[in-house]
Simulated scan of single mutants.
Amino acid sequence: MRYFTICDQTVDETSPEFRALLPHAYEQRLRPMCMCKEVPVAMYIARLDDQYLIKRMPLSGRDHDPACPSYEPPYELSGLGSLIGNAIRIDASGKADLKLDFPLTKRGPGLALGAPTEAAEAGIRGEPRRLSLRAMLHYLWETGELTEWRSTWAGRRGWRRVRSSLLNAASLMTARGAPLSDMLFVPEVFHPEDKDGITARRTAALKGVEATGSGSRKLMMIVAEVKEFSTARDGHRIVVRHMPFPLMIEDDAWRRLAARHETELELWRSSETFHLILAATFGVSTVGIASVEEVALMVVNENWLPFEDIHELRLLGKLSHLKRRSVKGLRFNLPRGTPIVSVTLPEQKPAPVAMFIVPAGADDRYEQALTDMIGARPEIAPWIWRVAEGEMPRLP
Rank of each mutant, 00 (worst) to 15 (best):
Phe18Met: 09
Trp141Asp: 05
Val162Asp: 12
Val287Asn: 03
Asp251Ile: 03
Leu206Gly: 12
Pro396Cys: 10
Gly126Lys: 04
Leu83Met: 08
Glu391Gly: 00
Trp385Gln: 11
Glu391Trp: 00
Leu330Ala: 08
Ile238Gly: 05
Val223Ile: 15
Ser165Leu: 08
Thr199Asn: 10
Phe102Gln: 12
Glu308Met: 12
Arg331Val: 11
Phe307Asn: 13
Glu302Val: 06
Gly110His: 10
Leu276Asp: 04
Asn333Ile: 03
Ser285Val: 05
Met298Pro: 04
Gly61His: 06
Val186Ile: 12
Ile380Phe: 00
Glu308Ile: 06
Ile374Ala: 06
Val162Ser: 08
Asp372Pro: 02
Leu184Met: 11
Leu53Asn: 07
Gly208Tyr: 02
Leu219Asp: 09
Arg336Leu: 11
Met57Lys: 05
Thr147Leu: 07
Asp251Gly: 03
Arg161Gln: 06
Ala351Gly: 02
Ile384Pro: 01
Arg89Ile: 12
Thr273Ser: 15
Lys95Thr: 11
Asp97Trp: 04
Arg233Gln: 06
Asn303Val: 02
Lys323Leu: 13
Val387Lys: 11
Glu389Leu: 13
Thr212Ser: 14
Thr147Ile: 15
Lys195Gln: 07
Pro40Gln: 08
Glu210Lys: 07
Phe4Lys: 10
Gly123Asp: 09
Val343Met: 05
Leu111Tyr: 15
Leu98Lys: 08
Val295Phe: 04
Cys7His: 09
Met248Ser: 04
Val343Ile: 14
His275Val: 00
Ala296Gly: 07
Arg62Tyr: 04
Asp372Gln: 12
Cys34Asp: 14
Arg62Asn: 01
Ala87Thr: 02
Leu146Met: 15
Thr105Gly: 06
Ser326Ile: 09
Val11Glu: 10
His64Val: 05
Ser15Thr: 14
Gln9Phe: 10
Arg217Ser: 13
Arg160Leu: 08
Phe229Ile: 09
Leu219Val: 05
Val287Asp: 12
Arg56His: 01
Ala360Thr: 08
Leu345Thr: 00
Ile6Thr: 09
Glu225Val: 12
Phe332Asp: 10
Gln368His: 12
Leu313Gln: 15
Pro350Asp: 04
Arg331Ala: 03
Asn301Gln: 10
Ile88Phe: 03
Thr5Met: 11
Glu312Asp: 08
Leu140Val: 11
Glu262Asn: 02
Asp363Ile: 08
Phe190His: 14
Met57Thr: 02
Leu98Trp: 01
Leu21Arg: 01
Leu316Trp: 07
Leu265Asp: 06
Ala259Cys: 02
His138Met: 05
Tyr44Arg: 14
Leu180Ser: 11
Ile222His: 00
Lys95Gln: 13
Val387Glu: 13
Cys7Asn: 14
Gly375Ile: 00
Leu133Cys: 09
Arg129Glu: 15
Leu21Ser: 08
Asp49Cys: 10
Leu104Tyr: 02
Glu312Pro: 01
Leu395Met: 15
Asp49Trp: 01
Ser181Thr: 12
Asn333Val: 13
Arg161Ile: 08
Asp101Asn: 15
